[in-house]
Every structure is written in structure tokens, then in C-alpha cells.
Design a protein around this nucleic acid. Structure first.
Length: 189
DNA sequence: GATTGACGCCGAG
DNA sequence: CTCGGCGTCAATC
């Protein structure tokens, strides 16, 4: 489980057509956590506050929240890795190099492309496919670290914290072809 | 140890 | 194509 951090942070938000985005920043102006889009402002803030109860609202980084919204909607946009708080005081504190390696690999998947859990595992010389999924599932920076671009080896979509349907929507907006099956969806390659 | 995964592979129907 | 079962290994209980 992700431990709860007492460090003070600020949360900035953005909303667009009934979807609410939130981003948490540390005092040294790095992103500590990103919320998946929610149906209300309270839920979006709650997604971050859950891990960082010591927060204040601020409009200082609303532009970042706006960017995240755009990326979510398929705009080809990058947020540099150095904007993310990846050290041990942040909410992302990998206990082994495994979790960190996975996140770094996922960060490098280009816009509009996908990789499989197996490929990620292989790229870090591991066969722990399932552990890769778990590590990605704990990703505190969804959308920016494009965990939605990691799919199963059989072409099926695989899981997503915000629900598989949200994963499908983002991929479609990035131009990836997906066919609907009776049971779930599949990438057309 | 034993259990649990955002998985993978193979074989049966 | 679907389903079950077993393989695999990191994290958690």
C-alpha cells in the first residue's frame, strides 16, 4: 500500500465539460500525485488528499492540471520527467529498483503506441509480468506516465485504475484502433 | 510460508 | 473465441 505523506502540498485543479482534474505539488514545485478525471471537484481533490492529507488549494498550477486534461483528451503533449517528484520523500517511494524501473520504462512509450506488460518486464530483464502490472497500478502519475499505453500480450486492453473503458477512450483518442468484442476490447495491430 | 495480482501460455471444447 | 489451469515473481499478509 501507498503510505500516507504528511508533507504539506498544494492542489491545483481544472475542469472541462463535467470532468475534474487535480494535481498535487510539493513545496519545491514538483508534482507529487495526479488524479484521474472525476465527476466532481471534491472527488478529484479527494483522490490526492487521500495520500496527502496536509494540503492547501492553490491556483498556482492550474495550467498543469489543464495540460493533464488535454493529454487525457488525446492532445500530443509532454510533461518532462524532471517535473515529477521521484525521490523518497514523495508519494512515489519505490522500495526496490523494480518499481522505479517499470515506471521509467513506461514513461518512454511514445504517444499513439502501446507496449505489453511482457515487453516492459523483458526490458528490465524480468519475467514478473504480473508484478509489472501491480507496479504500474500504483503509478501516482497516471496519464503523464502513460500507463494507459500498456496492454496485454493477447491484444486485450488489460486493467486500469479508472476502469478499462477509460483506458480504451484515451487510446482511441491517441489514434489507436480498437475493436469491440463480446468480451472486452482488443487492439487492432 | 501462503496469498494475491492492471499477466502469459497452452490445451480443451 | 472462451475458459481453466498452471507458470512466474514481487509485494503483502
Amino acid at each position: 500500500m501507498n503510505e500516507i505523506k504528511k508533507n504539506p502540498i498544494t492542489i491545483s485543479t481544472y475542469n472541462h465539460e463535467k470532468l475534474y482534474f487535480a494535481v498535487g505539488y510539493s513545496e519545491n514545485n514538483k508534482i507529487v500525485r495526479i488524479a484521474l478525471p472525476q465527476k466532481s471537484l471534491e472527488e478529484a481533490i479527494g483522490e490526492i488528499a487521500k495520500y496527502h492529507p496536509n494540503y492547501k488549494l492553490s491556483d498556482k498550477h492550474n495550467d498543469t492540471a489543464c495540460k493533464i486534461c488535454q493529454i487525457y483528451h488525446g492532445v500530443k503533449l509532454d510533461i518532462e520527467l524532471d517535473q515529477l517528484e521521484l525521490d523518497h520523500n514523495s508519494s512515489f517511494s519505490p522500495k526496490t529498483s523494480f518499481e522505479r524501473d517499470v515506471i521509467i520504462k513506461v514513461a518512454k512509450i511514445p504517444y499513439g503506441t502501446v507496449k505489453t506488460y511482457k515487453e516492459i518486464a523483458k526490458s528490465i530483464n524480468s519475467r514478473a509480468y504480473r508484478a509489472v502490472g501491480t507496479a504500474i497500478g500504483n503509478n501516482p502519475f497516471p496519464i503523464v506516465i502513460p500507463c494507459h499505453r500498456v496492454i496485454r500480450s493477447d491484444g486485450k486492453i488489460g486493467g486500469f485504475r479508472g476502469g478499462t473503458s477509460m483506458k480504451v477512450e484515451i487510446l482511441k483518442k491517441e489514434g489507436i484502433k480498437i475493436e469491440e468484442l463480446n468480451k472486452g476490447s482488443r487492439i487492432i495491430s
